[in-house]
């Protein structure tokens, strides 16, 4: 991996920004890589469409915005409709199987999906679906080491929820591993 431009999309409250933050933190603090995350500051509110964008690279990042995303993690239908066209040819698209119906799915990209929200509900809290998604993304893309991601999840989630989030991360990770094996 030389350079990954990543976009995470969903609706406010799903933990979209936290997901981006965890990837960036894992890469730059626990995995000897460089990460630059840009926060889109708009009138986003809970329930409306939101996105996080970041660059993960083996080298320092000069230009901070993403221009040609090669990885997208989309957790809502609206995000799919709005963003999936921007993904570069050959890029990787990851969606929540039950929240996103991939209409007119492009045939020049790789697509993986996971019922992350359902898994999260089964674990007891729908709120951790973004962490299931992060585990899945780690297994599929291998952009960042599993250990680094696990560590970043642990230190980034609210205190007292570490165990639940760890389970969510492992759930996504294992589901992803099976899929790529």
């Amino acid at each position: 991996m030389a350079k990954m431009e990543i976009k995470i999309g969903g609706f406010g409250g799903q933990g979209v920004i936290l997901s981006g933050y965890i990837i960036g933190r894992a890469a730059s603090i626990y995995d000897n890589k460089y990460a630059t995350m840009i926060q889109a500051f708009g009138p986003e509110a809970r329930g409306s469409s939101t996105s996080a964008q970041l660059i993960v690279s083996d080298e320092p990042v000069a230009y901070p915005y993403i221009t040609a995303p090669n990885l997208m993690v989309l957790m809502s239908q609206e995000a799919y409709t709005k963003f999936s066209g921007e993904l570069v040819s050959g890029g990787t698209l990851i969606t929540d199987e039950e929240l996103v119906t991939p209409h007119n799915l492009r045939n020049d990209i790789k697509h993986y999906s996971i019922p992350a929200a359902r898994f999260a509900e089964e674990l007891g809290k729908r709120m951790v679906s973004n962490i299931v998604m992060m585990g899945f993304t780690t297994a599929i893309t291998k952009i960042i080491g599993e250990k680094a991601m696990g560590e970043a999840v642990k230190v980034s989630v609210p205190k007292g929820t570490e165990k639940l989030n760890h389970l969510a991360f492992v759930k996504g990770l294992e589901y992803g591993r099976k899929l790529v094996e």
Binding site: I29, Y34, M37, Q39, F41
Partner: peptide, 10 residues
């Protein structure tokens, strides 16, 4: 500036 202020890095 806003870009540097809201940019997250190590």
């Amino acid at each position: 500036d806003e870009c540097v202020g809201h940019m997250i890095e190590r």
